[in-house]
Design a protein around this nucleic acid. Structure first.
Lengths: 166, 166
DNA sequence: TATTTAACCAAGTAAATTAGTCAAGTATTG
DNA sequence: CAATACTTGACTAATTTACTTGGTTAAATA
């Protein structure tokens, strides 16, 4: 999982699409103007988004792009992954020329982390972003806020505090 | 928050350091060899890690780097942020030449997301990574799995486990 | 004190990625 | 058929990444 301004462009464009595609396809030219992203760069990004079936396209006059899924089922992680080439997670990816030991250990640890980030981003839907709540206040789907059952007040405070952060 | 192989190098090196710095400073040459990262690149990364006080250095023979904090209080987000230049989050950062409206809306939505990712990464400690558990089994705090109010003992155990992990 | 070790520092560089342009297509509508 | 608008590919400048080279400085040890 890679996170750069490229992914930001993609998510931004998809958000714009989510806001405007209810009344039919949205041409890239509109997104380009509204979000100030060059048309041809958008073309490249949407080419990838289409290949991964996140959007559908309609050609000809009146055409454009639409989301291929409901915003609540379309996740940020998917968008970011779609536009980024796979980053070689381990350098020795799978191969046995890693001489084992130390190196592969940390490689695995990174993969572990990478998976977690990926999982995290795949829990954030476009829908959720569209609601634009203050994250610090609204914990959202990632919360286990009310999962504690019988805890002491002290413990409860600690848990709440921790959860507030996320 | 940017996430690239540069951050991976930094986290990898810090993990290596965490594993080896208990008996005194670790020279970069060792990390370089173990993790197969060029020495001079490590120097650049550690220069930044030192400036942000994540590591401390000892010069001269027998010298090297040590973690400047306990692994349980040193978080992945800090490491990644330390080695990356700040990415311009909104392009119109703060300025009022954004013409308001649509563009700034999605800009804000991205910032929102960016903050969440940042918060997430700042909850994952080196300590935790060192324990190298299988993430796919342990969903961690990000799950709402059992947010029901009345849970069985078995479920409670699960919750505890999950909380322990993150 | 001389030598070794290893951090610290700066400049430069090849490769990759980013962000964008340009110029052709092709499909659809009217 | 003509206009519209998506699609594709090749090409490019700017930036970033990962690394190299060639030092200087501080500390330990012989």
């Amino acid at each position: 999982m890679k996170l750069s301004s490229k992914g930001r462009y993609a998510v931004t464009a998809m958000l714009d699409l989510a806001f405007h595609s209810k009344k039919g396809p949205v041409p890239l030219a509109e997104i380009s103007e509204r979000q100030d992203i060059s048309l041809s760069y958008l073309e490249q990004l949407f080419s990838k988004l289409r290949r991964t079936n996140l959007v559908a396209s309609v050609r000809g006059p009146g055409g454009g792009y639409t989301l291929n899924r409901e915003p609540e089922n379309l996740f940020v992680g998917e968008i970011i992954q779609a536009v980024n080439e796979n980053i070689d997670a381990t350098k020795c990816s799978g191969k046995s020329d890693c001489k084992g030991g130390e190196k592969c250990l940390t490689h695995n640890l990174w993969e572990n982390l990478s998976d977690r980030i990926s999982d995290f981003l795949n829990q954030i839907s476009l829908q959720e972003l569209m609601q634009k709540r203050d994250v610090k206040e609204v914990v959202g789907r990632q919360s286990c806020y009310q999962s504690s059952v019988i805890v002491t007040d002290l413990e409860k405070t600690t848990i709440d505090t921790k959860l507030n952060v996320l």
